[in-house]
């Protein structure tokens, strides 16, 4: 056998093996090769609502709550919570500070939790 023929045979066998292995893999997989479906991708641009409802009032704690809690999420996150204990609210506020980088001082969390626990207990239409 000439060298060139042996090389062609080798490549052919390699291809055949790959096809067989592929076939087996596909038989075990829920993923199906599709008859090529044309998905057209076109550039997209949208505008998202900000959700700027705040807690009303002039108190210092209202201001601190609005400036910190509503920095990363709209008020809907608070208004849709179930009735929670003050302790749970404290843990939630503290998680925002320690895990998510909310620029609060540790000594502000208890006061915010107390404010939210009361403000969130009688919310009007949810979901802002």
């Amino acid at each position: 056998m000439s060298l060139i023929f042996r090389r062609i045979l080798f490549v052919f066998l390699l291809g055949l093996t790959a096809t067989l292995v592929n076939g087996v893999a596909r038989a075990q997989s829920a993923a199906m090769p599709s008859p090529h479906r044309t998905i057209r991708l076109t550039s997209q641009k949208i505008t998202l609502p900000f959700g700027d409802k705040v807690f009303a009032g002039d108190g210092k704690i209202v201001k601190v709550t609005n400036q910190h809690c509503l920095l990363c999420h709209s008020r809907g996150m608070i208004d849709t919570q179930p009735p929670l204990t003050l302790d749970t609210w404290k843990k939630e506020v503290d998680k925002m500070r320690t895990a998510y980088g909310c620029p609060l001082r540790a000594d502000q969390t208890a006061e915010i939790a107390d404010f939210i626990a009361h403000a969130a207990s009688a919310p009007a239409p949810n979901g802002n």
């Binding site: 009303a56 009032g57 919310p123 009007a124």
Partner: peptide
Amino acid sequence: MEALVNPTDYVNAESPAPSTSGPLPRRSFL
């Protein structure tokens, strides 16, 4: 292609609610 949005497509809860609602403090909004 641009999929622009008609603002009237939205519904939100600015509405009548609550004594607890008010304008966002200007500084924090900025």
